[in-house]
Write a protein that binds this DNA or RNA. Sequence first.
DNA 1: AAAAAACTTGCACAGAGTGTAAACATGCAC
DNA 2: GTGCATGTTTACACTCTGTGCAAGTTTTTT
Lengths: 226, 226
Amino acid sequence: MPKTQTASDTAATPAPSRRELNKAATRQAITDAARQLLRSKGPGNFTVEDIADAAAISRRTFFNYFSSTEAALASMTHGFLDNALAQFRLRPSDEPILESARAALVQLADPMTVAPMAELYSLAQSNPQLNRSELEAWDHCTEQIIEAARERFAGAPGTEPDELYLRALAGSVISCGKAAMDVWFARCGADLSAESLSTLRQLLIDAMGLLGSGFLPTATPSTDRH
Amino acid sequence: MPKTQTASDTAATPAPSRRELNKAATRQAITDAARQLLRSKGPGNFTVEDIADAAAISRRTFFNYFSSTEAALASMTHGFLDNALAQFRLRPSDEPILESARAALVQLADPMTVAPMAELYSLAQSNPQLNRSELEAWDHCTEQIIEAARERFAGAPGTEPDELYLRALAGSVISCGKAAMDVWFARCGADLSAESLSTLRQLLIDAMGLLGSGFLPTATPSTDRH
DNA sequence: AAAAAACTTGCACAGAGTGTAAACATGCAC
DNA sequence: GTGCATGTTTACACTCTGTGCAAGTTTTTT
């Protein structure tokens, strides 16, 4: 718990006020404590009070930051997906949108990015509470992609952004990304080796390929076996 | 919560024993009470005890049937989606799978079927708790579609059911169905008139069309208005 | 009719979330 | 710096959720 944060504030971020720093540190302390407890005790086997104690804050303060243990854990997934969204926004807006999605997703198959996600993902399979929070995170990301896509089309000439098109597309992209993740975990577990990540990358590409080709006949997709 | 006979006893009802009937009736009483309270008090403004009182059972018994108020409410959505799944399973297995999905979804645009859903759907938009339960229901349905599709392909000759294909397809179909619903609610509210339902039907068809054509360029989809 | 199995209920208890008011930290003006 | 406005943490109290348990009630079986 950051009482006196003192000296080392050489960080050159936009608004490094004392308050901002303290809040960020507390938030970090909470998520770290939560992740630690998840590892040591397993999902559902620890309480908010346990997290608060481990983070050296009061139970009440925990609830000032997160509305539940699951929300604290899901912040990792949110980080992961926010990253994907940021990648998407960086793509040139004249690029085919599915290509942008593909590129953004492939960026995620990177150890640093995928690691915090991977741990949660496997645990969420066997834990209803966690799973619901994960679903919510993906849904939230979908909403943001819709927004991003809307903006992209708004900048273009005669292409009026049809609402159904936007929502169906964004939802499908996310679903396909999720499908690729599911298959990856089924195949590789939480393996983060180079070849495992390569498999993930290929799965993401294949999934986008399926989407772009309209799930054509029943033919086996392009290049599946690494 | 004694008994009332439901619609499905015409042909060979498996086991219309007293116990089964009582349980079904209690279950019904609970969901009815929950729906009633949702209408009268609004989401989040009533407790499990309120539902139990209204259904003339004990609080403890409520939890023997549902794990939360949201779960009780989500049973409507589950019914709706189970219906969709049943429609899908009825389709001939040599039909293109997207066509089966389209047909199954269009069957849902029927007053009796969509009515219980419509009410919840709009409320879930503004209520996080409800929304999470809805997401879970859609996810559950996705899992079941994956299963159904797997079985369908298992019965075919040389087409081995690729896991990625199955999951990406099922997820996308559900996402598109959801997108159509979202747009429908945005346009028509909870209107259940014939023309409103016709709009829904067309949206579902259009969404499937987008999916089948790989969300082609940025062209506006086929027949969208009215 | 009596035993067995299934279901309901009241009670107790740990934990989730939230409002409130007092204490404490930080930012800002002078 | 002093002083004050504003934001944050904390203890406390309270309601509600969800579950185990044991005793009661209803349905099924023998």
